[in-house]
Design a protein around this nucleic acid. Structure first.
Length: 144
DNA sequence: CCCTGATTCGC
DNA sequence: GCGAATCAGG
């Protein structure tokens, strides 16, 4: 399929109309892929315009050379009640309660490197279930 | 997993 | 010149 004047024209219009490449491709015909559109567009020198994907290397790294505040907030987490949003790495991700419940939260104790759970819950999580002959899976033990 | 454009490279 | 494959990100 050659790029006729008409097609190029349409491509140009649709492109700066802000339509996505895939959308343009669909508009132009079934046998045109978005890759074709993008390729042609690029070749035509059409601008990259608002590409959703930004590879911005962050402007102005504040650069924090001096003035360090020492370790100000090294909080030691020993107990939990951590909401999902507050969950970070190194926190025990053991769920407590039922999702959706008012007080659904996570254990939140500190976990060792690479471990999703704290020591205690790790033990529980990785406990081998010995007699597993029945096909019926055991219902997960409900905490609390 | 859906999408976006960018780039590469064999044709 | 073309565009599928791949990439890099949302």
């Amino acid at each position: 399929m050659a790029w006729t004047e008409e097609r190029i024209e349409k491509l140009r219009k649709l492109w700066d109309d802000g339509l996505s490449a895939s959308q343009i491709a669909k508009e132009l015909g079934e046998n045109v892929t978005r890759n074709a559109v993008i390729g042609k567009a690029h070749r035509l020198g059409l601008k990259s315009r608002p590409s959703p994907v930004k590879k911005d290397a962050k402007k102005k790294a504040p650069a924090k050379p001096a003035v360090k505040k020492s370790p100000p907030k090294e909080k030691k987490i020993i107990s939990g009640k951590v909401s999902l949003l507050e969950l970070t790495d190194r926190m025990c991700k053991w769920p407590i309660g039922h999702p959706g419940d008012d007080d659904f939260h996570f254990c939140g104790k500190s976990s060792e490197a690479g471990m999703p759970y704290c020591a205690g819950h790790c033990a529980e999580a990785y406990q081998a279930q010995p007699q597993r002959k029945s096909a019926a899976p055991q219902a997960p033990r409900i905490i609390r």
